[in-house]
Design a binder for these strands. Structure first.
Lengths: 346, 346
DNA sequence: TTGTAGGCGTTATCAT
DNA sequence: ATGATAACGCCTACAA
């Protein structure tokens, strides 16, 4: 046992061939005679050599086999949302062909996890729901020549994006609600900026999170004066809290939430307040996920294909890594009427 | 604009200093005069240099800033289980101090994602629910000198492990069930091996998944003859399917599931069959998670601290990276009686 | 089919 | 406080 780990030249020497030949045996890029291969393999075995060091290989080839996904929230929170997990599946599928691993990075780490985006070896990065903080990351990555794809966010015109038709979709839902006779509508939105502060949206403050802004705009095109309450994350609990606030005083006859989880929370708040859905309160969601345990309610919602979203992002990354220049993609949501919206009953 | 990306030597030359000095400016490891630092920074700016290339740095330092987590299932499936997400949070916390990213790898990728475990630059690996396939991965990693920690699995005595007292915990639950008078008990287990085949467990075939084996053993110590039906993953749907099978013929008076999600599915199956829980059927789970929408049921279950599990694994990794030699950790589950188990009513 | 040569971009060591 | 030098381990033209 030498103290040093064996390298490919050690193996080559032991096998009585040159280092490049040994390298070729492992990469399989060039034909090698069977006897040579056998010799090299035997030598490798004898030395306990398990293959090229990924670090050295990646320096040489310029490829690390890693694609990073940057989240804006704690991983636990992000993955609690089926939209995220489905997206990860789509991403995994699309990345399969290039055999890349997925590196999870977070925006707001506990201590000082900051540097990892610029510090970790990666071939490409996917940014989720880009906000002002991420913008700077994009700049760094782009200057470094690392392909970047943004999902539901804006990072300059020449960064490929995967988007939803949030404005249109939310407007369609709003029109549905109005067609039922509702006029007194309140909105529950996702977080508006990096602070994730809860509370009624002050229309003078800018909304830096694009999803939030777009869905809000869609709803406001139909209900310009609807009050909007922002929460800090997409979860049933946050929806419950928001619902309590909105149902406390002069209560609206309909509440439109920006995610299904939030909508589920709102429904709970309604039940808590002794209201029936949809007779006393109509509720809409967004995403089209199956919220466990919400039965017998079937949310009126906008269905999005999050698997396709992840896949599109993955495919864009693969294309960029391949030197191509993928176009941005806009996926379309489908309006689905459930049993949580109904006609206004005075 | 040169076609080549600027390197640290370019910056050094532009700044009129040596490459090593420039390097030190970026790493901050050694004192540098303010004027030198300023010069270097200005040069970097001018050349669009955004910092050392992680690939080269990792080759030189031997650190990639990446810890891999190897899953046995599709990511979407894994993350659908709150136990996993909580664990990831704990892991993130523990890894915070060393600022490492988390690389997600899967066992059974869609196409041929195989090589990434040996191909990706990583400093350490965490293996989840090790099975026979993983065993070989462990060997490779260990020979390569990459620290490995195994969560709920067995990979040889000198690999640090994070474990639960599965046998004891499950036995305790079984004793509770027996104390209620039940004698005719069926079990729903997690997958027994890499094939993940559904069906009744044939006691002659070995169970390679340790969690499954241990929880089964605990239950069998109390109910030696209880039939056990294995499912392919921990989900409500799989529990539902298993429940249907077990409740079809001569039905048991109690069903013990190896996870809360499975137990929730069993309860659904019971409702479907017109049975009341716990009057007609007692059900136990494992994990102690909150299953959304299971109210008003509160599962009788074994509570585990999955956050602590992830944290323990992360801490072990940090210790190993630090040259220390962490001991294995066994976490204890707490029995929690809910309202899904009741006395036998003939 | 195999070998030679050179460099990928960085940082640690040691000397100045 | 700064600089010269030498690896880190591998891969890919190109030559033989």
């Amino acid at each position: 046992m030498s103290s040093r780990r064996a390298t490919i030249s050690d193996v080559a020497r032991e096998a009585g061939v040159s280092a490049s030949t040994a390298s070729v045996v492992f990469s399989g890029k060039v034909a090698v005679s069977d006897t040579t291969r056998a010799k090299v393999m035997r030598a490798a075995d004898a030395l306990g050599y398990t293959g090229p060091d990924p670090r050295a290989a990646s320096l040489r080839t310029g490829r690390a086999g890693v694609v990073a996904v940057l989240f804006r929230e704690r991983l636990g929170v992000a993955f609690r949302d089926p939209v995220t997990t489905a997206m990860m599946d789509g991403l995994t599928d699309a990345l399969g062909p290039i055999g890349a691993g997925i590196l999870l990075l977070t925006d707001e780490g506990p201590a000082e996890s900051g540097p990892t985006l610029t510090t970790a070896p990666l071939d490409a990065a996917i940014l989720l729901g880009c906000n002002e903080i991420l913008q700077s990351s994009v700049d760094v990555l782009r200057r470094r020549g690392i392909p970047v794809v943004v999902i539901e966010g804006d990072a300059g015109s020449d960064v490929p994006r995967v988007l939803l038709d949030n404005v249109d979709a939310q407007r369609a839902a709003a029109e549905h609600v109005r067609s039922l006779g509702h006029d007194d509508v309140a909105l529950v939105t996702l977080s508006t900026d990096a602070t994730r502060a809860r509370g009624f949206i002050d229309d003078s403050a800018p909304i830096t999170v694009e999803v939030t802004r777009d869905r809000l705009r869609g709803a406001r095109e139909v209900f310009p004066d609807a009050p909007a309450y922002a929460v800090s994350e997409s979860s049933i609990d946050e929806g419950l809290a928001a619902g309590r606030v909105l149902l406390a005083g002069d209560r609206p006859t309909a509440i439109m939430a920006q995610s299904d989880l939030l909508a589920a929370g709102v429904i709970r708040a309604a039940e808590e307040a002794g209201l029936r859905v949809p007779e006393d309160l109509s509720v809409t969601g967004f995403d089209g996920i199956t919220v466990d345990g919400l039965a017998p309610y079937a949310l009126t919602t906008l269905e999005q294909d999050s698997l396709a979203k992840g896949r599109a992002a993955g495919e864009a990354v693969v294309a960029m890594l391949d030197g191509r220049d993928p176009a941005s993609v806009t996926l379309t949501c489908t309006f689905r009427r459930g049993n949580t919206t109904g006609p206004l009953t005075v």
